[in-house]
Deep mutational scan, measured.
Amino acid sequence: MGQARALMGLSAQLDEELDFREGDVITIIGVPEPGWFEGELEGRRGIFPEGFVELLGPL
């Protein structure tokens, strides 16, 4: 779908969440519900709030 750069780090609180560090580039693979993305980073998949990232182009 597209890519996004992390504006800040996120520590996953639930198993389905993706954790990442500020500056990581995450591949967006879905939008499971409004306000959330599903992404992949370094072979890991999970969901995260859209406010933690900036899109690097259209989805």
Rank of each mutant, 00 (worst) to 15 (best):
Met1Tyr: 09
Met1Pro: 01
Met1Trp: 09
Met1Phe: 10
Gly2Arg: 08
Gln3Asn: 08
Gln3Gly: 01
Gln3Glu: 10
Gln3Ala: 09
Gln3Thr: 14
Gln3Ile: 12
Ala4Arg: 07
Ala4Ile: 02
Ala4Gln: 05
Ala4Tyr: 04
Ala4Ser: 03
Arg5Phe: 06
Arg5His: 04
Arg5Cys: 05
Arg5Pro: 00
Ala6Met: 08
Ala6Ser: 04
Ala6Val: 06
Leu7Lys: 14
Leu7Gln: 12
Leu7Asn: 03
Leu7Tyr: 04
Met8Glu: 11
Met8Tyr: 13
Gly9Arg: 14
Gly9Leu: 05
Gly9Gln: 14
Gly9Met: 03
Gly9Tyr: 04
Leu10Ile: 11
Leu10His: 15
Leu10Gln: 15
Ser11Pro: 09
Ala12Trp: 03
Ala12Leu: 03
Gln13Phe: 07
Gln13Ala: 12
Gln13Val: 12
Gln13Ser: 14
Leu14Arg: 15
Leu14Ser: 15
Leu14Met: 15
Asp15Ser: 11
Asp15Ala: 12
Asp15Met: 09
Asp15Glu: 11
Asp15Val: 09
Asp15Tyr: 08
Glu16His: 13
Glu16Gly: 14
Glu16Trp: 10
Glu16Phe: 10
Glu16Lys: 12
Glu17Gly: 12
Glu17Asp: 10
Glu17Trp: 14
Leu18Phe: 08
Leu18His: 02
Asp19Ile: 04
Phe20Ile: 08
Phe20Tyr: 02
Phe20Ser: 02
Phe20Ala: 04
Phe20Leu: 05
Phe20Glu: 07
Arg21Tyr: 09
Arg21Trp: 06
Glu22Gln: 12
Glu22Leu: 08
Glu22Tyr: 06
Glu22Met: 10
Gly23Ile: 01
Gly23Glu: 05
Gly23Cys: 04
Gly23Thr: 02
Asp24Lys: 00
Asp24Pro: 02
Asp24Thr: 06
Asp24Arg: 01
Asp24Cys: 07
Val25Ser: 04
Val25Asp: 04
Ile26Ala: 02
Ile26Lys: 03
Ile26Trp: 03
Ile26Glu: 02
Thr27Pro: 02
Thr27Glu: 15
Thr27Lys: 12
Thr27Gly: 04
Thr27Leu: 02
Thr27Ser: 12
Ile28Leu: 06
Ile28Asp: 01
Ile29Pro: 03
Ile29Met: 12
Gly30Arg: 13
Gly30Ser: 11
Gly30Leu: 04
Gly30Ala: 11
Val31Leu: 10
Val31Ser: 12
Val31Cys: 12
Val31Asn: 14
Val31Trp: 00
Val31Ala: 11
Pro32Gln: 02
Pro32Leu: 05
Pro32Gly: 07
Pro32Cys: 02
Pro32Glu: 06
Glu33Val: 02
Glu33Cys: 14
Pro34Lys: 13
Pro34Gly: 03
Pro34Asn: 07
Pro34Val: 11
Gly35Gln: 02
Gly35Thr: 01
Trp36Gln: 10
Trp36Cys: 08
Trp36Ser: 07
Phe37Trp: 04
Phe37Asn: 00
Phe37Ala: 01
Phe37Ser: 03
Glu38Gly: 04
Glu38Cys: 11
Glu38Pro: 02
Glu38Met: 14
Glu38Asp: 06
Gly39Met: 03
Gly39His: 00
Gly39Gln: 00
Gly39Asn: 02
Glu40Ser: 10
Glu40Leu: 12
Glu40Cys: 11
Leu41Glu: 01
Leu41Cys: 10
Leu41Tyr: 11
Glu42Ala: 12
Glu42Met: 14
Glu42Ile: 01
Glu42Phe: 06
Glu42Pro: 01
Glu42Trp: 03
Gly43Ala: 05
Gly43Asn: 08
Gly43Leu: 02
Arg45His: 09
Arg45Pro: 00
Arg45Val: 10
Arg45Glu: 07
Arg45Gln: 13
Gly46His: 06
Gly46Trp: 02
Gly46Thr: 00
Gly46Gln: 01
Gly46Phe: 05
Gly46Arg: 03
Ile47Ser: 07
Ile47Leu: 11
Ile47Met: 05
Ile47Asn: 07
Ile47Ala: 09
Phe48Ile: 06
Phe48Lys: 04
Phe48Glu: 04
Phe48Arg: 00
Phe48Pro: 04
Phe48Asp: 03
Pro49Phe: 04
Pro49Arg: 13
Pro49Glu: 07
Pro49Ile: 04
Pro49Asp: 02
Glu50Trp: 09
Glu50Tyr: 05
Gly51Gln: 07
Gly51Trp: 13
Gly51Cys: 15
Gly51Asn: 15
Gly51Leu: 10
Phe52Val: 10
Phe52Trp: 07
Phe52Glu: 07
Val53Phe: 03
Val53Arg: 01
Val53Trp: 00
Glu54Trp: 09
Glu54Ser: 05
Glu54Asp: 09
Leu55Ala: 08
Leu55Asn: 02
Leu55Tyr: 08
Leu56Ala: 06
Leu56Cys: 10
Leu56Gly: 05
Leu56Arg: 08
Leu56Asp: 08
Gly57Pro: 10
Gly57Thr: 13
Gly57Ser: 13
Gly57Phe: 08
Gly57Arg: 11
Gly57Ala: 13
Gly57Trp: 06
Pro58Trp: 05
Pro58Met: 04
Pro58Glu: 11
Leu59Arg: 06
Leu59Gly: 11
